[in-house]
Design a protein around this nucleic acid. Structure first.
Lengths: 300, 300
DNA sequence: CTGAAAGCGCTTACAG
DNA sequence: CTGAAAGCGCTTACAG
């Protein structure tokens, strides 16, 4: 029989199957930007884990718009996906309730939103930043600058809070002209670093709140060589392809990105199975600190 | 009526619709690696264009395996996708015939395969490399090294051929110890560059055949500063986030990545509409050369 | 254990 | 023009 089947080149029509079974074996993934290393790593983790269970992944780009995010959600619900994983585009989540109304499990990744709670997988940005800055301050760093993101972005907020709190607890007064905020993109990192370094008394240790601004900072440094303080030190959130490139000593806060994706997939699969134990479950995965070129740095 | 519909929160069930209409309004995207900037840019272009026509995109990771690629294809066909876009994982394409047998249009991206022909969208790697090297040679460069990929990869082959041909036509004999081949990943670029630079007579101009090996090269340089020839010059395929970071003057061959994705989507949509004009259509999009820090470089 | 029938939620061709 | 019926390709509950 199998032979006849394969000879006839028969393929089940999963559309018909889904109509009957009410399961499509597909999960939607919505993200604010899909050509972005961080997002892709998450997507890989998600696809990996889903694939193991026979599920496939429909990717929709919300292009940083809550409106498009809502449209994406509706599209996915019409497609009868069994679950949805979303990196939210904005800070509000009212429209996300659509998924739960349709009884489709929804898991958030990387960011939490206001007015709406559901399962989520992310890291503790505040705590991770706090620990890194505290470690540096304890190691003798005293002059800190900060290159952050806009406060309406959840991760930008948490990272800034951790930074400021660490300075306070270490008795280091933050200097306003050393606290700059950009848009989490490369150019912004470049210009804010330029701004910091051109100040009469630039900070010696600069914390950069995301990977893309970190790239911008590295780009600035690679053009300015010689004109930057010899004792410059960088700390940055995320650890990816380029985190190791900088010739300036640095500390990266590494998120377990693959794990974030896999855990989000795991969670959505669990909910699809109908297991609603301790919903909503906000899972914070541990970060790691990784240092580069650190060996010769002064320790008082 | 619309009010009643929206009040009742009614959503069409596209599964039922698809069963009847025989169209799922979905397209599969298969790639050898999904956490990869190049691939993501392509995916963005594809998603953009598909979204404009109401199609969505199912992403499957073949993880560089022709076997998994074939499984992905079967999965997508069972899901009744209306079309498929694939970046092939290997150099053989026999198994890809499955799609056409099932009368599902298939468009290849970035690479062509043996034993199988269908629509494709890519660049002319050979020609682009040839032009860049010829331009450099004409500008006075005489000592070339090459950091390439394995010959079973289509783009690696084309880029190497263009390089060698350009040297020949410029009367520059290639030196065997300056021609090295890696695996298109970061580490490989690092080590091959190290190998080149530690030779008694290192090449002054190094052509790097892909973006990830280029990152590895930049990483090596950023660690070795001072110990590299002052007249070192880099040429590299692809132009992305980090291409601009290098402090060494360089030339990037930029592929129109978004356009590649959009054109692939356009082609698959055309075939889905039933328009089979001039199939198979191999579309080669133009590349651009972009130079960095070039202004003070010697021109004889 | 086997095989015919009903039904999933749409669309479409057709009868009234 | 409107409304009931058939059918898309499966699965599943049921009759034989």
């Amino acid at each position: 029989m199998l032979d006849a089947v394969s000879l006839l080149n028969y393929k089940v029509n999963t559309v018909a199957r889904s109509l009957k079974s009410k399961r499509t074996l597909s999960v939607g993934l919505i993200a604010p930007e899909i050509d972005n290393v961080f997002f892709m790593r998450v997507a890989r983790g998600v696809e990996d884990r889903l694939g193991e269970e026979g599920y496939s992944m429909i990717v929709v780009n919300a292009r940083e718009s809550e409106l498009r995010e809502e449209a994406a959600l509706e599209l996915l619900l019409e497609k009868q996906v069994d679950g949805i994983i979303a990196i939210p585009s904005g800070s509000r989540g009212d429209h996300l309730a659509l998924a739960l109304q349709a009884r489709v499990p929804l898991v958030l990744v990387d960011r939490l939103v206001e007015n709406f709670t559901t399962d989520a997988v992310l890291v503790d940005n505040r705590e991770a930043t706090y620990r890194a800055i505290t470690r540096l301050a304890t190691g003798g760093h005293r002059s800190f600058g900060f290159i952050g993101g806009q406060p309406h972005i959840f991760t930008a907020r948490e990272r800034y809070q951790g930074f400021i709190q660490a300075l306070r607890d270490q008795g280091i007064p933050p200097r306003e002209e050393h606290l700059l905020f950009g848009d989490f993109h490369i150019e912004s990192g470049y210009h804010l670093m330029k701004n910091l370094m051109e100040q009469p008394d630039p900070p010696r240790t600069v914390m950069i709140a995301n990977y893309f601004m970190h790239i911008g900072v590295i780009r600035y440094i690679s053009f300015q060589r010689g004109q930057i303080p010899p004792d410059l030190y960088l700390a940055a959130f995320d650890n990816m392809e380029f985190s190791a490139v900088s010739s300036v000593p640095s500390l990266s806060i590494a998120q377990p990105i693959d794990q974030i994706g896999r855990h989000a997939a795991e969670r959505v699969l669990q909910r699809i199975q109908g297991d609603n134990e301790n919903w909503p479950c906000i899972e914070r995965l541990p970060t790691k600190e990784i240092t580069y070129n650190d060996q010769h740095h002064h320790q008082p």
